[in-house]
């Protein structure tokens, strides 16, 4: 399906969640390169580097110390350099108002962290697949909204 690697970045302050995340991708049969960061500051530092390899999909946890997921989201959306990144909010909350708010602020995807590993694998796989379809089908990135 794709010739190159899909670059994926996760920013999450929870060690266990990072572990789940990387384990899930390593078990999926997709050519992906996964990077994780401990908090928002580390993430933005990386992204703002001159020669940074920008991810195709960025997974953002909301509750992070120092810089929250929302703050990162706003920063990223205000910089046109990052327009091509599909942003997925990766969170424990399932409050409707929260979810809508992240979409309004520019997130493309909202994922509620599942409580089952297999479910997690499926979700991540679906996200990457759909994102890839968008990417290759020339569909409007602006309107790309997905909720898992």
């Amino acid at each position: 399906m794709q010739k190159e690697y899909i670059h994926i970045v996760l920013a999450d302050d929870d060690e266990d969640d990072r572990l789940f995340f990387t384990d899930a991708f390593s078990e999926l049969k997709m050519s992906t390169k996964v990077q994780t960061y401990n908090d928002g500051v580390a993430l933005m530092d990386y992204l703002n580097q001159e020669d940074a390899i920008l991810p195709n999909v960025l997974f953002l946890d909301l509750n992070m110390p120092r810089k929250s997921g929302i703050e990162c989201l706003q920063e990223i959306k205000s910089n046109s350099k990052f327009d091509n990144i599909a942003i997925a909010i990766y969170s424990t909350s399932s409050s409707e108002e929260h979810i809508e708010e992240t979409f309004v602020l520019g997130a493309n995807i909202y994922i509620k962290k599942p409580n089952d590993f297999n479910a997690l694998k499926k979700v991540l796989s679906d996200v990457i697949t759909i994102n890839w379809q968008y990417h290759t089908s020339g569909l409007n990135k602006e309107n790309f909204l997905l909720r898992m």
């Binding site: 309004v104 309107n143 997905l146 909720r147």
Partner: peptide, 19 residues
């Protein structure tokens, strides 16, 4: 397909426009 309803989508687009 998207996980949200068309009316939710409408709302989100409208709010984005407002901002």
């Amino acid at each position: 397909t998207t996980g949200i309803t068309p009316s939710q989508f409408q709302r989100i687009i409208a709010k984005r426009r407002e901002i």
